[in-house]
Measured scan of single mutants.
Amino acid sequence: EESQDIKALQKELEQFAKLLKQKRITLGYTQADVGLTLGVLFGKVFSQTTICRFEALQLSFKNMCKLRPLLQKWVEEAD
Protein backbone atom coordinates (compact mmCIF):
# COMPACT_ATOMS: atom_id res chain seq x y z
CA GLU A 1 0.00 0.00 0.00
CA GLU A 2 1.23 3.44 -0.95
CA SER A 3 0.90 5.08 2.45
CA GLN A 4 3.11 2.32 3.91
CA ASP A 5 5.73 3.07 1.28
CA ILE A 6 5.60 6.76 2.06
CA LYS A 7 5.87 6.06 5.79
CA ALA A 8 8.89 3.84 5.17
CA LEU A 9 10.45 6.50 2.96
CA GLN A 10 9.85 9.18 5.57
CA LYS A 11 11.51 7.02 8.20
CA GLU A 12 14.45 6.50 5.86
CA LEU A 13 14.69 10.24 5.21
CA GLU A 14 14.68 10.90 8.96
CA GLN A 15 17.52 8.45 9.50
CA PHE A 16 19.44 9.87 6.58
CA ALA A 17 19.01 13.44 7.85
CA LYS A 18 20.47 12.33 11.20
CA LEU A 19 23.37 10.60 9.49
CA LEU A 20 24.04 13.65 7.33
CA LYS A 21 24.14 15.94 10.35
CA GLN A 22 26.42 13.61 12.33
CA LYS A 23 28.78 13.21 9.41
CA ARG A 24 28.84 16.96 8.72
CA ILE A 25 29.60 17.80 12.35
CA THR A 26 32.19 15.01 12.68
CA LEU A 27 34.02 16.30 9.62
CA GLY A 28 33.76 19.89 10.84
CA TYR A 29 31.63 21.24 7.98
CA THR A 30 29.01 23.94 8.33
CA GLN A 31 25.63 23.69 6.62
CA ALA A 32 26.83 26.41 4.27
CA ASP A 33 29.89 24.29 3.38
CA VAL A 34 27.63 21.41 2.42
CA GLY A 35 25.50 23.68 0.24
CA LEU A 36 28.60 25.02 -1.52
CA THR A 37 30.06 21.56 -2.05
CA LEU A 38 26.80 20.48 -3.69
CA GLY A 39 27.37 23.40 -6.04
CA VAL A 40 30.80 22.04 -6.94
CA LEU A 41 29.47 18.49 -7.39
CA PHE A 42 26.23 19.27 -9.22
CA GLY A 43 26.49 22.84 -10.44
CA LYS A 44 23.65 23.89 -8.16
CA VAL A 45 24.48 25.65 -4.90
CA PHE A 46 22.08 25.15 -2.00
CA SER A 47 21.72 27.70 0.78
CA GLN A 48 22.60 27.06 4.39
CA THR A 49 18.89 27.46 5.13
CA THR A 50 18.00 24.61 2.77
CA ILE A 51 20.53 22.27 4.37
CA CYS A 52 19.34 23.33 7.82
CA ARG A 53 15.73 22.64 6.89
CA PHE A 54 16.65 19.27 5.38
CA GLU A 55 18.41 18.24 8.60
CA ALA A 56 15.43 19.44 10.62
CA LEU A 57 13.00 17.63 8.26
CA GLN A 58 11.26 20.93 7.55
CA LEU A 59 11.18 20.68 3.77
CA SER A 60 8.28 19.20 1.85
CA PHE A 61 8.40 15.46 1.33
CA LYS A 62 8.90 16.01 -2.38
CA ASN A 63 11.86 18.35 -1.81
CA MET A 64 13.38 15.98 0.73
CA CYS A 65 13.20 13.19 -1.85
CA LYS A 66 14.74 15.42 -4.52
CA LEU A 67 17.61 16.54 -2.32
CA ARG A 68 18.39 13.18 -0.82
CA PRO A 69 20.38 11.63 -3.70
CA LEU A 70 22.50 14.79 -3.91
CA LEU A 71 23.20 14.78 -0.19
CA GLN A 72 23.80 11.04 -0.31
CA LYS A 73 26.53 11.72 -2.84
CA TRP A 74 27.96 14.39 -0.56
CA VAL A 75 28.10 11.89 2.31
CA GLU A 76 29.94 9.42 0.07
CA GLU A 77 32.37 12.04 -1.29
CA ALA A 78 33.00 13.69 2.08
CA ASP A 79 35.18 10.90 3.44
Rank of each mutant, 00 (worst) to 15 (best):
T50V: 12
D79S: 06
P69G: 10
F42S: 11
M64L: 06
V45P: 13
V40M: 10
V40D: 02
G28H: 15
K21T: 01
R24A: 00
L20I: 09
F16W: 06
K7Y: 10
E14W: 06
L9Q: 13
A56D: 14
K62T: 11
K21I: 00
C65D: 14
F16P: 12
L57G: 13
F46G: 01
D5S: 09
D33Y: 00
L13W: 03
V40A: 15
V45S: 12
L59S: 04
E1Q: 13
I6N: 10
V45F: 09
L41K: 08
L70R: 02
G35K: 07
T50N: 02
K44H: 09
E12Q: 09
V40I: 12
L57A: 03
D79I: 08
V34R: 02
V34G: 04
K7F: 08
L67N: 15
K62L: 03
K73Y: 03
L67I: 08
I6W: 06
D5G: 07
V75I: 13
L67Y: 02
A78P: 03
R68G: 01
Y29V: 08
E77N: 15
L67V: 06
T37Q: 15
F54R: 02
Q58L: 05
K66M: 13
Q48M: 15
I6T: 14
E76M: 12
A56W: 01
Q10S: 10
F54P: 01
A8S: 14
L27Q: 03
C65N: 06
L36R: 14
G39V: 00
Q10A: 09
V75M: 07
N63V: 07
A32C: 08
E1L: 10
R53A: 11
P69D: 00
C65K: 08
C52S: 15
Q48W: 09
L20G: 01
I25H: 15
S60Y: 00
A56L: 08
F61N: 07
K23N: 00
E77Y: 13
S3L: 14
T30C: 00
E77I: 11
L9K: 15
Q4E: 10
D79E: 11
S3Q: 15
G28P: 00
Q4R: 10
Q10T: 09
K7N: 12
G39I: 04
I6E: 05
G35L: 01
Q10L: 08
Q58G: 03
I6C: 05
L13T: 00
K23S: 04
G43N: 06
L27V: 03
E14I: 14
K62R: 09
L38Q: 04
K66I: 05
V40Y: 08
G43Y: 08
E14T: 06
K7E: 11
V40K: 14
A56Y: 03
T37A: 15
L38T: 11
Q4D: 12
S47D: 07
L67P: 00
E2S: 12
R24C: 00
D33I: 04
E14P: 02
P69A: 08
T26R: 14
E14L: 09
Q15S: 10
L59R: 03
D5A: 10
P69Y: 02
A32T: 11
L70Q: 14
L71A: 04
D33F: 05
T49Q: 14
Q4V: 11
L27W: 09
K23L: 03
R53V: 00
K62A: 12
Q72N: 04
E12W: 08
K66C: 01
M64T: 04
G28W: 01
T30G: 02
T37W: 14
L9E: 12
V40T: 15
Q22L: 00
Q31I: 03
C52R: 15
M64A: 08
L19W: 09
D33G: 07
L41T: 11
T26E: 12
L19R: 07
C52I: 11
K18C: 08
I25M: 13
K7M: 07
D79T: 10
T26I: 07
G43W: 02
F61P: 14
E55Q: 04
A78I: 15
F42R: 02
V75W: 01
L70H: 04
A78D: 01
A32P: 01
D79Y: 04
Q48K: 13
K7W: 09
L59C: 12
F46S: 03
K21L: 00
L20A: 02
T30Y: 08
I51P: 05
K18L: 10
F61D: 02
R24W: 00
L38E: 02
E55R: 03
L19Q: 12
A78W: 00
L36A: 15
L36C: 13
L59Y: 15
A78S: 10
S47K: 03
A32F: 04
I6H: 03
T37V: 02
L41S: 01
L57T: 06
K66E: 13
Q10W: 15
G28R: 03
P69R: 02
D79A: 01
K21C: 03
G28L: 01
Y29D: 05
K7G: 09
K11W: 09
V45R: 12
K73G: 06
E1A: 08
L9I: 06
L70C: 09
D33L: 03
T50R: 01
E77T: 10
A32H: 04
L57N: 15
Q58K: 11
E55L: 00
Q72C: 10
D5Y: 05
Y29L: 11
M64N: 03
L67E: 07
K7L: 11
M64W: 02
L38H: 07
R68P: 01
R24T: 03
R68K: 09
C52F: 06
Q31R: 04
G39R: 07
T37Y: 09
K62G: 09
T30L: 00
W74S: 02
N63R: 12
Q22R: 10
Q4S: 08
M64R: 00
E2T: 06
A56M: 14
P69F: 04
F54A: 00
Q15Y: 00
Y29T: 01
I25F: 05
E77D: 10
Q15L: 08
G39Q: 04
L36D: 13
